[in-house]
Design a protein around this nucleic acid. Structure first.
Lengths: 193, 193
DNA sequence: TTCCTTTGTTCAGCATAATAAACGAACGCA
DNA sequence: TGCGTTCGTTTATTATGCTGAACAAAGGAA
């Protein structure tokens, strides 16, 4: 099996993503602030995101250039239709991913939120929608939902928990048995011993 | 329902991720090159990733500082145990995600690879392992697998395809019916008309 | 030995995304 | 009116990650 990683400069699509992680959070902050307080100013965004007003000012200036943010009659910040769409896309991706990680995969709430927050702005609309579709299917039937929960509940995080994985038998290394347990490098590699 | 996005500076964990997207691809390039040609030099990595030798030289210097990369007796690049673990983690995340998107969600191969490549270095080891576990469960039973494929095959990407979503009834907006269809801003918003 | 190529490094320049500090304008009160 | 605070912006600085150009060292061919 040929490894299909690192084909040319395909990997650099990461840089050309529609929106950066920080831009997404600026948009969402404006959205949330307007929802909760009725208005959003540079200072409010800076406070909410815990960054300096200067940084917020510059970042929001870029968002205005991109036509994602404008000002209303009172000079308060306002999302454009495009800006709202981007904010909603990322918000929904976050909700979908965190719900999927927590409720289907059984990951702890904390880790589910952390993983979802990192990936939220990178999942395409189509993939996100299909993930909702899948969760709708899984969670709509109580029996099916319970079965999956049961299957996931016997999950064992250790390397040696499984000696054969039907998913990977065509590949050189199984994704479950491969030693990626101690990525942070405290333990010795298990497979060598 | 309170929105749990933008709580303080939690969103900035993105910056503190163990590994950057580019660093992950440098490590994987070295891994693949050694696998396929038996050695890896700065120039080979630069060629594979389609970046300048200068950039590769500087990036790899950083990876050496982090103790992810060293040199062998012949001064060829070599992954340390930690470097190998990081490379394997990202490679496996890529495989898991792309397989999940394509085979379970039914996303096109192209989009599955693009999404997976963007998210590969951000998914935690635990979440990745649990996703393999889920896929193992789903794909191990032919009947179950077919049922999911059937459920996913009636997926309709349009906004108006669903008028009630049992997943979202406790939330203010449904993730499926919400108008995030034309994120790239060519169409007019469907819900307003 | 001389010449040319390959290889790896360094440097200047650019873009992004952040901080910290300074500053002007507007607001609010006594 | 004047003082102090708030607000938004600007500037200098830092760090990352890239390009392109220059350059030194090593190797191969005549």
């Amino acid at each position: 099996m040929t490894r299909q990683i690192n084909d040319g400069s395909f990997w650099r699509e990461f840089e050309k993503n529609d929106i950066t992680h920080s831009a997404a959070h600026y948009l969402m902050a404006i959205d949330v602030l307007r929802d909760e307080y009725g208005y959003a100013r540079v200072t409010d965004v800076a406070e909410m995101l815990e960054i300096s007003r200067g940084a917020a000012s510059m970042a929001i200036a870029q968002l205005k250039k991109r036509d994602w943010v404008t000002e209303d009659r009172n000079r308060f910040l306002l999302l454009t239709d495009d800006g709202r769409r981007m904010a909603k896309l990322v918000e929904h991706n976050f909700r979908i991913l965190s719900q999927f990680f927590e409720e289907v995969l059984g990951v702890s709430k904390e880790l589910a939120l952390a993983d979802a927050c990192k990936m939220e702005h990178l999942m395409s609309l189509e993939t996100g929608r299909r993930l909702v579709w899948l969760m709708r299917y899984i969670l709509s039937d109580d029996k099916r939902s319970k079965e999956i929960q049961k299957a996931m509940s016997c999950f064992v995080p250790g390397c040696e928990s499984v000696d054969y994985c039907p998913l990977c038998d065509s590949q050189e290394e199984c994704m479950l048995t491969i030693d990626t347990c101690d990525v942070h490098g405290t333990k010795k590699r298990a497979m060598e011993n």
